[in-house]
């Protein structure tokens, strides 16, 4: 029993770390720009297919594939901001209008990928994954890397936001865009920066996932939903909250198997979301959730 608990905990930590990485990549964009960037899911998918195309299609080394995938993700994410969201913001479109456009972009790119790559699962095989067994608990070197990479990126992001000038500007915009404008911060450039960082973080998440489970064109929808749930559960505007939200979902999905039959596993995340909305709409660590304002 203890062994099973340990194994489930390890599983939960591995998938939770990946959710956490996804959540901060989404959260940094939502927190800074207040844009509900649903198309973040497709940036994630595109990164996975980019890595696949370079590493498998062109037989480049995996590390180079990863670098190029990050470049693709950043270009796509920033492209969506510049060519879709910015024009809409100039029209003073409502956040919901932006969200619909975002959904549209997601649908377009997802199906373009389906046409180009087909819907078969695509596998990247370059990672030397080996089994590690520690006192009855088993995991692979890939799982270990997932945890290490996710948390390393999280701390690098925090260092950036709290330790650099541009990072501080980004936090300033996140807290109050009007105030940031007054002190002379170019919010448009900060927005682009947030999209670049968020998209760049989505790429390693996508590649770690693909190394383990393969890529399909529809992988991004689930990913962005999980990221959004983690961010809302953690509290919008709080990156540590988002990361903890991701961990919570990962662990709950694995531990939950004791409480609910396993076929309900994928409902667990949504169940947590509904509970949080009903009983703690500010999120567990957040300060405010936009309610109808006076």
């Amino acid at each position: 029993m203890l062994e099973l608990f340990a194994q489930l905990t390890v599983n939960g930590l591995v998938s939770g770390s990946l959710f956490a990485l996804l959540a901060i990549s989404f959260g940094v964009i939502l927190g800074t720009t207040r844009t509900f960037h649903f198309a973040h899911g497709i940036v994630y998918t595109a990164a996975a297919y980019g890595a696949y195309a370079f590493a498998e299609g062109l037989s480049l080394p995996l590390w180079l594939g990863v670098v190029l995938a990050v470049v693709i993700a950043v270009l796509l994410g920033v492209g969506i901001e510049v060519f879709v969201y910015q024009p809409l913001r100039r029209l003073y479109a409502s956040p919901l209008t932006v969200l619909i456009a975002s959904l549209g972009v997601l649908i377009i790119v997802e199906n373009a990928i389906a046409i180009f790559f087909s819907t078969d699962a695509k596998i990247i095989s370059g990672f030397p994954s080996r089994l590690i067994v520690l006192g009855g608990v088993a995991f692979t070197t890939l799982h270990l890397s997932t945890v290490l990479v996710s948390w390393a990126l999280f701390f690098i992001l925090l260092l950036y936001l709290y330790g650099t000038k541009t990072g501080k500007a980004m936090r300033g915009v996140a807290t109050s865009p009007e105030m940031a404008e007054i002190v002379g911060i170019d919010t448009r450039r900060v927005f682009v920066g947030a999209f670049a960082i968020g998209s760049a973080l989505a790429a390693p998440a996508a590649i770690l996932y693909t190394l383990d489970k393969g890529a399909t064109p529809d992988m991004g929808v689930t990913a962005v939903l999980m990221a959004a749930i983690a961010v809302i559960v953690g509290g919008v505007g709080s990156l540590p909250g988002a990361a903890l939200g991701g961990m919570m979902i990962g662990l709950a999905r694995n531990w939950g198997i004791w409480l609910v039959p396993s076929e309900w596993q994928s409902a667990i995340a949504f169940g947590i979301l509904l509970l949080v909305i009903l009983f703690r709409p500010t999120g567990l660590f957040g300060v405010k959730l936009r309610k109808a304002e006076v």
Partner: peptide
């Protein structure tokens, strides 16, 4: 895509 929990129970 994630069968880790079921498989952990099977393994146990």
């Amino acid at each position: 895509t994630d069968y880790a929990a079921q498989l952990a129970k099977i393994k146990a």
